[in-house]
Structure formats: structure tokens, C-alpha cells
């Protein structure tokens, strides 16, 4: 007996570590979806945030008002912005068979499928760490990883996301993030 409590909803689950911008990028993607006329819910896995601790965040996007208030258990998309987390968790857990797995990693989609036994949907890999270090000189992996998720899922236009980023970080930081986002879109591997 399967019951679908998320009709018309695209649900994201994010993995990262405290301080890496999981909550921020989750909100930013949510606000981009909002700007395109959607209803959203963007919330972190609540708790006292501590730098370095594994954290999760959730996002729901829908054309209709969203009434379900609970964590996301069966996501359509999982985004993991920290490669070291792949040592301690299986990012594909709970992911829909037709879902999309987006990882910041040096590995390619085939390796990832083998490693986590995820056969369905799409696997998207991007070396967001390298992009962030080369473009921004700092470990801001979240934006390039999000960019790969956006381009692979088409859940919003990448330009809408860039708009939100420039809006939130006017000036140099925004510009550099834009460069990182555009590069990630180009370099992301889908398989």
C-alpha cells in the first residue's frame, strides 16, 4: 500500500556541514523557485548549529500551496555539498528511484552509482571544491554544487538563481559566485 503525500511537490534533501552554507543555498534555491511563481518550504534540520557538524536541510517546491509539515523522507533530489560526508552516509537513502543525486566529488557518475548502488534516475557529479577554490579562493562549495543540481533538474532557471545570488551578495562576492555557478553548470557530469 503506497501512499503519496507529496503530489505535485518536488522535494530536496541537502547534506553538508555546519558553516558550509547548506541552509543558505537551500533558502536561495527556494527563493528562486518562489520568484518563478511557486510555493515553497525551505527549512533546515533544526538544531543548534555547530560548525563542522553534519547538517541537513529540506526544500519543497510546488505550483500549489504546500500543506504537509514534516521532514522530507522520500526526496526527488539529494544534494551533498561536502565530499567527506560520503564516507559516513549514503546520500541515496530514501531517494526516489527516478530521483536525482547531486554530489560535490572528484568521482564520476559511474563510480558513484557503483559505490552507492543507485541504479535509477540521474547521478550528477561536480568538483565544486576545486571550482570554489580556483574561482573564489575559499571553500564555498555550496553555490557550485547547487548550480549542478539546478541545471540537472531544471527545477528553476539558472538565471533566476544567479539573480537571487547577486541580490543577496551584491558586489564582488556575488560576481565570483556567478562565475563559479556558470563554471559548475558547464563542468557537471550527468550519468
Amino acid at each position: 500500500m503506497s501512499m503519496d503525500f507529496a503530489k505535485g511537490i518536488t522535494a530536496f534533501r541537502w547534506h553538508g556541514r555546519g558553516g558550509q552554507g547548506v541552509v543558505t543555498s537551500n533558502q536561495m534555491l527556494g527563493k528562486a523557485a518562489l520568484a518563478e511563481g511557486n510555493y515553497i518550504q525551505a527549512f533546515p534540520e533544526f538544531g543548534p548549529e555547530r560548525t563542522g557538524a553534519p547538517v541537513r536541510a529540506f526544500l519543497r517546491i510546488s505550483k500549489e500551496p504546500i500543506q504537509v509539515y514534516a521532514q522530507v523522507y522520500i526526496p526527488d533530489v539529494v544534494v551533498c555539498i561536502d565530499p567527506t560526508l560520503l564516507e559516513v552516509l549514503n546520500p541515496a537513502e530514501g531517494l526516489k528511484t527516478e530521483g536525482t543525486l547531486v554530489l560535490n566529488t572528484e568521482s564520476d557518475p559511474k563510480d558513484i552509482r557503483d559505490r552507492f548502488g543507485f541504479k535509477g534516475g540521474k547521478v550528477v557529479t561536480v568538483d565544486a571544491s576545486t571550482i570554489a577554490m580556483e574561482v573564489m579562493g575559499r571553500p564555498f562549495y555550496n553555490m557550485p554544487t547547487m548550480a549542478a543540481a539546478v541545471s540537472a533538474t531544471g527545477v528553476v532557471e539558472i538565471d533566476t538563481v544567479i539573480g537571487e545570488v547577486l541580490n543577496r551578495y551584491p558586489g564582488k562576492v556575488g560576481d565570483l559566485n556567478k562565475v563559479a555557478i556558470e563554471r559548475a553548470v558547464k563542468e557537471a557530469q550527468i550519468g
Binding site: 527563493k31 511557486n38 510555493y39 515553497i40 518550504q41 527549512f43 533546515p44 533544526f46 509539515y69
Partner: peptide, 12 residues
């Protein structure tokens, strides 16, 4: 409002 569930949840 429900703490965190709404207080920290970005909605439209």
C-alpha cells in the same frame, strides 16, 4: 507558530 517547523521555515 510551531517552533522551527514554521519559525525557521521559508514560505511564500
Amino acid at each position: 507558530i510551531d517552533g522551527f517547523i514554521l519559525s525557521h521555515n521559508v514560505e511564500r
